[in-house]
Design a binder for these strands. Structure first.
Lengths: 344, 344
DNA sequence: TTGAAAGCGCTAACAG
DNA sequence: CTGTTAGCGCTTTCAA
């Protein structure tokens, strides 16, 4: 039950060759005879030889591994991004190490250390919502490890080897509101999360701008700010329906609260979209299960993961010599018009 | 812009100590004076020293890393399990490497190789649905790397260092059907996926057994086999409602098809649960968004991840000396009774 | 309490 | 085309 794994030295001894030749044969180096390569490969197969990446990495100074650091792997969004990252990374030949900060800065710091210790070649991170300083990312920058922020970025944290991939919330929201206006809505309500978060800020600003651009008035009664979930969405909708002039359209910055609104509207025997058109945001899976199916904005979360890896790859290739950091990538949203907002 | 990272040798030189002392100090070894430890730690902090895990792993013969291999990181289930794994692994001090097979045996083989190359200390795997041979797992067994199958297991693949964590589908399904009977249902339909998959087989068998145990007849008209999604669920429900004696209860082996059924029943102006009670399976997020809210079975997916890691840990600790493999873990289901099946 | 020395498995000059 | 040599950064005897 000894089970030491076969090593290059073992192969070398068995075949009466030198380790270097074995190494070269295995990596299909040009200057090894085909005959030798064949013998080596055959024996390697036989002995189930597996190259030791730890050793190779140590020697080469490259671990072949990238790190992901996300707040958590739950909900709809992060799993999708992780999926995108893992898929693209595999394609490019990287191993992927994954950590969760649990929305906690302290954890985030520890995880960054872990990844750095593991000698990852680059880090993809979406920061915890409690993160308010850069100290831990400082080390990453100092060691010149490429760093890509996605979705939740630290806007003040710049560097020659730092970049980001974000979603164009403003444009997404603007499209939604324009669409509702095109459908004939003139009193459009907005459900927004707290404005200190960028995503909410941008989406809300787009709402205001789109109304103004189309010559519609801004009405404070039509704006509700709360933690965006189903229950609160339902509650907000009930309030709106009590207004003397009820809204004829709702733009919810989140799908859950849109569902809450939808249910309330239906319960009041109003028709969606004829009486009230509703559009959510994020294209969560359940939006295609509602009746009527919910219009929403697709964030193309997997694209985000893919783009992040590609950005990293680019930074890795260009090397630290190239100065300016790669431009941030801004992913364009895609409005999905479904039954809940399609009048006609 | 040189940026070579600080190494133990660097610390040693700066402090006029030997590398061994530094190493010992950093790992808080007993026989290093507190004074020295302090100096070492201080300098390490100052230089942002990060231990090189590749080197340490190589030397120790332990990488401190476990591998996850899943079919994909999409949907509701696998992300939850991965979350459970990552959380528990972090707690136990393991790094986590993650791979996706994309339901493809060939990919699965490659990924197993990757993980083995990366010198993972153990592998947690849910096999691709195309996997029909063990060859790639053979290597894992041979190298005595602990292997834990979860959810999708290879039942014929035994070994002294192989175990599994599965969900008790039979009991979950049995509970569902018993519950429906208690609610007064006497004509209970069942939506099932293809029976060559274990999960479907067990759930269906439990359906049959529970009916029989309660003295209810088995009626072929009430059983529908199809790929479990919303559309097919709706279609199946429409067929059922055409029967002379329509069902008064539906057990769907999957939440999506249950939603499909729910929508059709409502569209026919029948009441849920009074006319037709409906129960799904898996406790997907959207089940609490429907009207009425859908009863279902919680699989405690995160528990599964946690249990898998703990099992791995146990195998790692007991070492290859202990013969018999740890007993498989069978997770108990939890029936969630919600509005769609709660009469009264 | 500290140091010297060896080596984990691999690769990459440099020689032949 | 193949071999020799050295060393990546760390840990661990063994010796002082």
């Amino acid at each position: 039950m000894a089970n030491r794994r076969a090593s290059i030295t073992d192969l070398a001894k068995t075949l009466g060759l030198s380790p270097s030749t074995i190494s070269r044969a295995l990596s299909n180096h040009d200057d090894v005879s085909e005959a030798t390569k064949l013998r080596v490969r055959q024996l390697a197969d036989e002995l189930h030889y597996k190259p030791n990446q730890l050793a190779a990495g140590l020697r080469r100074g490259r671990s072949n591994t990238v790190g992901i650091l996300v707040p958590h792997i739950t909900g709809d969004f992060f799993p999708k991004v992780v999926h995108g990252i893992a898929t693209e990374a595999a394609k490019l030949g990287f191993n992927v190490m994954i950590c969760q900060s649990n929305e906690d800065v302290r954890q985030e710091q520890l995880n960054i250390d872990l990844l750095l210790n593991a000698q990852v070649e680059g880090i993809l991170v979406s920061v915890a919502n409690t993160t308010d300083n850069f100290r831990h990312f400082e080390d990453v920058r100092q060691q010149n490890i490429p760093l890509v922020f996605f979705d939740r970025v630290m806007e003040d944290f710049q560097g020659s080897n730092v970049s980001s991939v974000v979603f164009d919330d403003y444009q997404g929201a603007y499209q939604v509101v324009s669409h509702l206006i095109e459908q004939g809505c003139t009193r459009i309500a907005h459900f927004s999360g707290p404005l200190h978060l960028n995503i909410n800020k941008y989406r809300h600003q787009a709402y205001l701008d789109a109304l103004t651009a189309h010559g519609l008035p801004i009405d404070d009664d039509l704006m509700a700010f709360f933690e965006l979930n189903q229950k609160n969405g339902a509650h907000a909708m009930r309030q709106l329906l009590k207004l003397r002039q009820r809204p004829d359209g709702v733009f919810s910055s989140n799908d859950l609260s849109a569902v809450g609104a939808l249910q309330v509207v239906k319960a009041h025997r109003l028709r969606v979209p004829q009486d009230v058109a509703i559009v959510g945001f994020s294209n969560e899976m359940f939006t295609s299960l509602t009746e009527p199916m919910l219009s929403t904005v697709d964030q193309r979360s997997e694209q985000m993961g893919k783009a992040a890896v590609q950005l990293l790859q680019k930074m890795l290739k260009s090397g630290p010599k190239s100065q300016g950091p790669p431009k941030p990538i801004v992913l364009k949203p895609k409005l999905l018009i479904r039954e809940s907002s399609q009048r006609r």
